[in-house]
Simulated assay, not measured.
Amino acid sequence: MSQAAAISEEHDEELAEQEATKWEFDEGFQRKTLALFMRDTQFANRTKDLIDPGYFANEAHGQLVGLIKGHLHVHKSVPDLRILTQILKDEKAKKRIRDDAMTEIKQAIKDVMKTDLSNSSYVAEKVSDFAKFQAMEQAILKSVELLQRGDFAGIEKIQKAALAVGLQVDEGDYHYFKEIDNRTQVREDWKAGKIVKRGISTGYAEIDAYLYHNGWGRRELSLMMGAAKAGKSLSLGEFTKNASLLGYHTAYLSLEVSKDIIADRLDANISDTAMRLLKDDPQTVRARIKAAEAKAGHFILK
């Protein structure tokens, strides 16, 4: 094989790999991701190591991501529109951006500025899931070669690195006054009905209305406090049951009540039967529990 042919094949493989790693997300979701990455410093800092310019189907979107990542690396914040305009001028002067590409980039910026910034946490999670999948897929492929060499330590190392891929916990410095425009935009989107709260309902609309996420916040810790016999254990069982009936997978751990007692309480609640009467008509209770299970998530007791 000639050297030119070898280089050509290598280039073709590289292009194929890049094409394979493009996001399966549609154009609207990709534009949404770019809008958040371009305008929301917190989102950008959390996802900067997960988002790659090559993931975007639109070349102009990918170029903008590359420019913003460079600025973010040095200045720890996303550039505002004025600074971004200057960055583009500098890149054009250095002939790093073609004239025909500049037109597409400007149009992309106009589109992004019209895109709402709602549900950033959901978008960040989807970006993280994709990056984890890609990292694990590559780790598995490399592991095959290492396995043939008997390099088990190498396999463990790359597997651990792949498993560590995820969102940044440290979101970077939050400049309170500078971020008011972003906060205002989110509130405007909320007012316009563009934002849907993603809280997990307590099962009680009156309680949901007082919680920030209109329910329990995902990946957050909520604490029940009260005097002895105030109903903390009962409320935990109730809230867990309600989440399960909404289709979420749940777990209820108790250090004071047995699983049998908890299960009886739940049976009484779901079947609308007094605990002392559960043994009077077991088949009716069973039928009501089975009916509830049809739409429920897994419910584990420990």
Rank of each mutant, 00 (worst) to 15 (best):
I51L: 11
R219I: 10
E238G: 03
E156L: 11
K232W: 06
V123T: 14
N214C: 02
S143Y: 07
K142I: 02
T85P: 03
K22Q: 08
A287I: 01
A101L: 14
Q86E: 13
R39C: 04
D116C: 04
M275R: 13
R219V: 04
A209I: 08
H11D: 12
T33A: 12
Q18F: 09
A16P: 00
K295L: 02
S120G: 03
T184G: 03
T240N: 11
L84Q: 07
E156F: 11
E104P: 08
I7V: 15
A263D: 02
Y176V: 14
K157S: 05
D280K: 14
L50M: 04
N119Y: 01
S244A: 15
A268T: 05
K106A: 13
A228W: 03
K92I: 11
R276L: 08
L50G: 01
G203W: 05
E17T: 08
L67R: 01
S271F: 06
K95R: 11
F25Q: 05
A230Y: 00
E293Q: 15
S271H: 10
G203C: 08
D272W: 01
K22V: 03
D49Q: 14
E13M: 11
K32G: 00
E91C: 10
E145C: 04
D99M: 10
K32E: 01
M225F: 11
I51H: 03
K48M: 02
Q148E: 15
D26E: 08
K69S: 12
Y122A: 11
M1W: 00
L84T: 02
A93L: 11
H75K: 15
E125Y: 11
L255K: 11
W216T: 12
V144F: 10
G66N: 06
V127G: 03
P79G: 01
T21V: 09
I109P: 05
L301A: 10
T240Y: 00
R219Y: 13
K178Y: 08
S143R: 11
K232V: 02
K95V: 04
K302N: 13
A294T: 15
V65A: 06
D280M: 14
R82H: 08
N119R: 03
T284I: 08
A268N: 09
F239H: 10
I262E: 04
K69A: 12
L236D: 07
A209Q: 14
A164H: 08
M224S: 10
F133N: 12
A227P: 07
A131M: 06
F177I: 10
W190T: 03
A101C: 08
S118I: 02
L301F: 14
F152S: 06
I261Q: 15
